[in-house]
């Protein structure tokens, strides 16, 4: 069983938002909504400043409060890649999953259903990289299978320092920020 994940190299990311624009186009994300976004964290006092830039999206968590709280089964873990998806035709728009996601990674599509990053499963199934990974001009995003010991992502995680977002939320997110 594959377990897709992303490792994003914060050393290389420049926060250019190309990943955000590409996702918009690829997935027709409506104007005013984001499936991915850029967070910058600035620490210190000028000129001794440290800056980390993170390209964020749904973490496709191993433990999924968003799926658990969904009353209709619309939110589910996909058989392929354990990607967390929403079945539009089952979603009643109760927004429980929006509130349950510690990362606020979801939103309600103007058509009424819960929407979020799909890890571009439609591309991945065709053997392509997710749109954001594919566009990133700094090549700082890496996508792959955590269950495959030989995957590039596992090699990166073995050789680099990294952190996940809000590990204390207990979700075990599958987006790793290399530092």
């Amino acid at each position: 069983m594959a377990r897709f994940a992303m490792a994003i190299d914060t050393k290389k990311c420049v926060g250019c938002m190309d990943c955000v624009v590409a996702c918009k186009n690829e997935n027709s994300v409506p104007e005013g909504y984001n499936r991915d976004w850029i967070v910058t964290i600035t620490e210190g006092k000028y000129p001794d400043v440290h800056l980390e830039i993170q390209s964020q999206r749904c973490n496709h968590c191993d433990n999924t409060p968003c799926v658990e709280c969904c009353p209709t089964g619309a939110s589910h873990v996909n058989d392929v890649g354990a990607v967390v998806l929403v079945d539009h035709d089952k979603c009643i728009g109760c927004k429980a999953c929006l509130a349950a996601c510690p990362y606020s990674a979801r939103f309600i599509n103007p058509e009424g259903y819960a929407d979020k990053c799909t890890f571009c499963i439609h591309r991945v199934e065709k053997g392509e990289m997710p749109a954001c990974v594919n566009v990133c001009p700094t090549h700082c995003m890496h996508f792959g299978d955590l269950d495959d010991p030989n995957s590039e992502i596992n090699k990166l995680l073995a050789s680099r320092k990294f952190h996940q977002l809000l590990p204390e939320a207990g979700t075990n997110p599958r987006i790793f920020y290399l530092t």
Binding site: G32, N34, V39, T40, T42, K45, Q56, K95, A99
Partner: peptide, 21 residues
């Protein structure tokens, strides 16, 4: 000092969650 910025601007989510009124 900690400065945080985000470019996300989803209705009902940002600047803080308000899915339920």
């Amino acid at each position: 000092m900690l400065e945080l910025t985000t470019t996300r601007h989803n209705p009902m989510i940002d600047p803080s969650l308000h899915v339920w009124s």
